[in-house]
Design a protein around this nucleic acid. Sequence first.
DNA 1: GACGATAATTAGTCTAGGCTAACTCGGTTT
DNA 2: AAACCGAGTTAGCCTAGACTAATTATCGTC
Lengths: 239, 239
Amino acid sequence: MTALSRSKQDYLKALYALAPEGEAVPTSQLAAHLSVSPPSVTNMLGRLAEERLVKHAPRAGARLTALGRREALAIVRRHRILETFLVRVLGLDWSEAHHDAEVLEHHISDRVLAAIDRLVGHPHEDPHGHPIPDVHGRLRRRELVPLARLRRGDRAIVRELRDAGSPTGERAARMKHWQDIGLVPGAVVRMREVRPLDDVFELQVGTHRLVTGTEGLEGVLVEVRRSPSGRHGTRGAQA
Amino acid sequence: MTALSRSKQDYLKALYALAPEGEAVPTSQLAAHLSVSPPSVTNMLGRLAEERLVKHAPRAGARLTALGRREALAIVRRHRILETFLVRVLGLDWSEAHHDAEVLEHHISDRVLAAIDRLVGHPHEDPHGHPIPDVHGRLRRRELVPLARLRRGDRAIVRELRDAGSPTGERAARMKHWQDIGLVPGAVVRMREVRPLDDVFELQVGTHRLVTGTEGLEGVLVEVRRSPSGRHGTRGAQA
DNA sequence: GACGATAATTAGTCTAGGCTAACTCGGTTT
DNA sequence: AAACCGAGTTAGCCTAGACTAATTATCGTC
């Protein structure tokens, strides 16, 4: 039961990021996500399959086994606790913290992780609202909807700003922007206007008035507080 | 200027530990210290020599260059700051902290190190009193003498408990013992009796009375406070 | 049902960093 | 001076994990 190499951990994490529900992930997608060639992926999937961490159906992609999923969740847990620590205790800004956590998540021992977790108060969410799996790899279920799905008049609380796996420049800039205008977990927002035909949303975040398109809200998840007067219809998963 | 691999860092650190003044270290000694075969050492020394980190005179051992020494001191700095953090902030016990620092010293970024250093208050010494090099690799000089060199009646302040490079079970147990009886950096000790022929020392540490042989004091360095009444002769480096 | 495009796999290399076995050099003994 | 011994080096091999080039499956189209 030797610890997994850094590389193997990265593959498992990627697999989880690309298919949290355990769907099959194509080789090429994994290769792109990890910035590695497709043959390298095939090769590594073979080894991970031997260790029963993934199921690899040739030419039909790979999926995590229950064991692999546990490992992946353990890595996610380490990452998110570290990120929380780096931001809240050490005061790094988020994208710095993200990069450092990316490295440290592979090298931190259980006891140091436990101590850090205690230090930051056993958080259930990282600084961007991503849920932190518990020691058994359990994630608490949440009922979140994309901010862009709110309707006129709806109020909601921001719960999570997805970093979409690997935040590159583009993404980091947008997250920084959100932070600047106060669109952070816990913030209360109100949808003032929705013009579907123009793909325009006008919303209120604290004192800020924000006008965006769907794209500009990508990855912002909220918990809906039906408008007090509210009788706009039932909530459902309409496309 | 790619960062050095973990392995290379370990070789440089070992070289520094075995020859802090830059003396030549035999291949076999390095091999033993790193738990690696002699041919592996020869091989790695070749590569480090190409990078101008060491000077390797075939069959005459290796020594750090100025550049290599700088790298080694940077690693020592990381290690000691981390150890201080792990003990003082996270509350790990020393031997745990040591093991974790051994890993993390290779993976912590400058900015995280700086933040941790700030958090623990820019210490000049780690929890065992080892001096922490500054960012430029400078170590402050200290005038410490081995505790076993005190003479009857001398008082001194404990400044450093050497961990002798790689603290194995034996060593860790002794350090734990010292901690239990209050023989820690900052403690005041008084030599009550010295019986050279029996190799026996009796000393006072706080309320504890300690009786040991030379061996049992190996690696305890103190700063002498000549006994107030003191006129026992001049201090010198007598063998 | 054959044909191409595209994705995936196989085959073969490379580098880092280990290892063992065999050889060589330099100092000590006789 | 010759022989010897042990530390150090050379030679050759191994594994992890990447790569490129070449090959093969599969799927959608005609």
